[in-house]
Amino acid sequence: MKVLVPVKRVIDYNVKARVKPDQTGVDLANVKMSMNPFDEIAVEEAVRLKEKGAATEVVAVSIGPVQAQETLRTALAMGADRAILIQTTDDLEPLAVAKVLQKIIGEESPDVVIMGKQAIDGDNAATGQMLAAILGWPQATFASAVELSAGKAKVTREVDGGLQTLEVDLPAIVTADLRLNEPRYASLPNIMKAKKKPLDIKELASLGVDTAPRLKVVKVTEPPKRAGGVKVETAADLVMKLKTEAGVL
């Protein structure tokens, strides 16, 4: 059983994004970049499936700039077997990413694709569902548990109100939520080993996929700032202020 894991290079989750003064976007110069945290969870899940004997090969794919190789090396150091970089300096929209992944899936024929539920830069949470749609595959989004058996995946999903369990026929798309697992840190020997694992690079243009943007970014602005608050000394003070000053009790 082959598992494909799409991973995106994004701003590190500890960094607060700053809007550029000219309102054209977010300033990413000299900002720490990492693998999207949900994609780390997806890689971890795929590697665990391999360790359990449920999967035989884990392939990581990223669509992004030359530096996304580092992201792929991280996936390899965590235990992925090979990696593919679709190189482009364009920032693709989820629909375009899904179309590129569809093309790669056509070449690789994975049994299951495990990806993040959301990339923490654009916060779209759309690519997995779009990919499932254009492939005509079933989807199991926001997964907190995945079990693979012959031709099927049983997935527990985090939904508003609690948990839902679905069984999907393979091939299928699974998107990872926070509680699926806790990703490992790659060990130094594994980081060294990852340097020798295969990493194929293809130019986006060579795939012949229409990735033209559908949305034009008019501007990127800062959200309204909250006015500074005050410290209160006691709980009684707090209640008094909430009642008389804020009027919310």
């Binding site: 701003i11 607060k16 994004a17 700053r18 809007v19 977010v26 923490i120 830069d121 654009g122 916060d123 949305l215 034009k216 970014v217 008019v218 501007k219 990127v220 602005t221 800062e222 959200p223």
Partner: peptide, 11 residues
């Protein structure tokens, strides 16, 4: 976008 640290206007 970016956890609400930026607002994007798209057309």
């Amino acid at each position: 976008i970016y956890a609400g640290n930026a607002l994007e206007t798209v057309q």
